[in-house]
């Protein structure tokens, strides 16, 4: 295989997309399946250790995982030539367009989730961690908004992964 082989490069980008995606969704599920349900059981004097040390580190890998997943995904869709068909969910594309419909729904779900991470969860978590100043009421509101949006992303991750796997393995 030549290094100029186009397929070799698309596989490389796909590999980056999946590794970044595991980093992102792995942390999303850690927050929702492990950290959030466990916090009420942790003695109050130990909770600052989670919020001050584990949370900032986890949020770093979480949000940049989301960014690189989106970036690699868009590059991959462009390189494979289906980005426009996917954006319009295959509607109006030459038939059969099942894969474009599936990957398109997955892309839209993933993009909504990426937006939620960078523009809702992250700004609110900065208030919770105290890196952005806020009143106690604002911190409580931020904790609620970040938590609910994180749950929305957990919900959306289930059909999003269905679409991604469907599109990659439907023949």
């Amino acid at each position: 295989m030549e290094l100029s082989d186009f397929n070799w490069w698309t596989q490389f980008i796909r590999w980056g997309h999946i590794i970044s995606g595991i980093m992102w969704i792995g942390h999303l599920w850690y927050f929702n399946f492990t950290q959030t349900p466990t916090m009420p059981k942790i003695p109050a004097e130990l909770r600052p250790a989670v919020v001050r040390f584990i949370l900032p580190e986890a949020l770093f890998w979480f949000r940049w995982g989301a960014m690189f997943t989106l970036g690699f995904g868009l590059i991959l869709a462009y390189m494979n030539g289906y980005i426009l068909d996917a954006i319009k969910l295959g509607i109006g594309s030459p038939s059969p367009h099942t894969k474009a419909t599936a990957i398109g729904i997955g892309m839209w779900l993933g993009t909504i989730m990426w937006f939620n991470v960078w523009f809702i969860i992250w700004p609110n978590q900065q208030k919770v961690m105290g890196t952005v100043s806020a009143t106690p009421d604002e911190v409580n509101a931020a904790r609620r908004m970040a938590g609910l949006t994180s749950r929305v992303n957990t919900l959306l991750s289930i059909p999003m992964l269905y679409c991604m796997v469907f599109a990659g393995h439907y023949y």
Binding site: P37, T98, R151, I158, P159, F166
Partner: peptide, 30 residues
């Protein structure tokens, strides 16, 4: 909606339901 999202089990079930809906939409548009 908030009550549903506050429940992890409810969130997962809603995710499976939404997946079925998405699968039907993919089938319908194919």
């Amino acid at each position: 909606m908030e009550k549903l999202l506050n429940s992890l089990t409810g969130t997962i079930i809603a995710g499976f339901v939404l997946t079925v809906i998405v699968a039907v939409i993919i089938h319908a548009l194919a």
